[in-house]
Amino acid sequence: MTSKRKPIILGITGHHNTGKTTAAQLLEAHVDARVMAFSDGIYAEVAKAFSVSIIDLASRQGKNQPQRLLALHNCTDKAFVQAALPHAEGDLLTPRSPRQILEWWGTEYRRAQDPYYWVDQTLHRITDYISKGCTRTIVIADVYKLGEAALIKAAGGTIWRIERPGHEERTAHATSNEHLQIQADLTLHNMGDISHLQHLVLTHWHELKTHGHHHTTEAA
């Protein structure tokens, strides 16, 4: 009897707007990858608590734009409001941006309750996916914390880092900077157009499928 083939598990880290989501979408389109995110649960919970759509929360154009619907007094989860108030200086009425609310929800609220809250949720989804016999590549394109990277490694996965010139800035929020401490197996330098990125992603995915882990290498 032959054992079932386990899926490739690939985590992608790097600064914001370097091409991580695009890389995941390319793998979804060209190798039928199953795209997941540690932030999936954050979006779902925030959307429910504020009665807004996940699409609006995830819109890149509106991510930093304050919205009246995201003022804290519109939130039905009072425990979140209490957790956010010190950071909001007690202001319940000021419109907040999706990025601000998502960061507070992810870190100041849920991770303050349990540092592995989002990791455990994602682990459950991966385990459930594999238990059903699914073998499609799993891609998680928002690996920003050490615990998230550790989960992928523990599951036998690989970490890619994507770098793009001009997107090296650091931000004040801890979630945005912790990824700098993650040791990637492969660094992809996104220095061209989407065709260049597609070539990089698909070439190294095929190498990963054929040969297994990379060992701290660079690819341009």
Rank of each mutant, 00 (worst) to 15 (best):
Y144P: 07
C134D: 13
R125D: 14
L151A: 12
I126R: 05
A83V: 06
W105C: 06
R125W: 07
D142G: 07
A71V: 07
G157V: 09
F80A: 11
V143I: 15
R111H: 04
Q82P: 00
L146D: 15
R60A: 08
R111I: 09
L69I: 11
A150L: 15
S59L: 10
D114Y: 05
L123Q: 15
D77S: 01
N64Y: 01
A84G: 06
D91Q: 03
G157S: 10
A154F: 04
K132F: 12
T127V: 10
W105M: 13
Y129H: 04
C134E: 08
Q67G: 04
A58L: 06
Y116E: 15
Y117N: 09
A141Y: 00
Y116H: 14
I138W: 02
L146A: 12
L151Y: 12
T107P: 04
F80V: 08
L151W: 13
L57N: 11
S131I: 05
D77P: 00
A149Q: 11
S131R: 11
Q65I: 13
L102P: 05
P66A: 05
I101L: 05
A141D: 14
I152C: 09
H73S: 07
A71H: 02
H124D: 15
T127D: 06
L151R: 09
Y116A: 15
W104Q: 11
Y129V: 08
D114I: 02
R96Q: 13
L85E: 10
L102D: 03
S97Q: 06
H73Q: 11
H73A: 00
Q100N: 10
N74C: 13
L123P: 02
A88G: 02
L123E: 15
W105K: 05
